[in-house]
Amino acid sequence: MQEFLQQLINGLAVGGLYALIALGYTMVYGVLKLINFAHGELFALGAYLGLTLLTALGLAGGGPAAVALILLFAMGLVALAGYLLERVAYRPLRGSGRLTAVVSALGASIFFQNAMMLVFGAKARVYPGGILSGEVFTLLGAQIPATRILLLASSLLLMLLLYWFIHHTRTGAAVRAVSLDQGAARLMGIDVNRVISLVFLIGPALGAAAGVMAGLLYGQIKYDMGVLYGLKAFTAAILGGIGNIPGAMAGGILLGVIEALGAAYISIAWKDAIAFCLLILILIFRPTGLLGERTADKV
């Protein structure tokens, strides 16, 4: 029970990160029907920018307020990177085939990854420890570090904000309209290009937040960390039903928990394989995901 609770909390904390990254995949897929392979790299970029700001501003001992500030900075900068990515690598390909855009996304991913390696170095970098409280709660005998709770809470907060924005604002309604039917949205007077740009600001910003949080959670970041996280977050997006925003949140958290429990009770060595097996099984048996709607588009 104690072990289970411990793993559950671990899983929820990691799942929150997966969910934040998955939101970027799912929103882009919603409006462009494109798997943004460079999204994982934007997540890693967020982690690096967070660390750079943290050390440059000397905020390593600043507590949660400093972390929040860093988080916002990193989110803003990565949002800009996401915007540029769409303008340079995806917008010129609008209307050409799916494969063309996918290859462009792969190229952008390789570009970002190696740019980060050149700028930040090929070795893993260490996040300063104990920025957030080092306190550890004891709940029913399970040891729960306060950092995990704080991270889980912040990712949930970001998700709630996004949910509110998408479902309760005019702009959010425009995003939903574009993902339903681009042509019809345009006829209704929605500026589709602006909506797509907006999605490429929001998605990467959430990814960057996840990047900083991953640094705080694990204490170590590496230039190629975006690949594995990206693939897993994409799995989470599929799990929840790609294009579906609450689905990505649920899928991310579920994947984090499944992985943590699988690692604890099956074998830690097979942890990464669990996510990919899950991905294949979902695509075979329920390609619309858990919360995905049935669509006319044949999968």
Partner: peptide, 20 residues
């Protein structure tokens, strides 16, 4: 070694735009 993959990635994007 380090710069060549950077160029490779950029070239992939450029190829898709100009000569898919």
């Amino acid at each position: 070694l380090e710069a060549r993959m950077l160029v490779f990635g950029a070239a992939m994007v450029a190829m898709m735009i100009f000569r898919p």
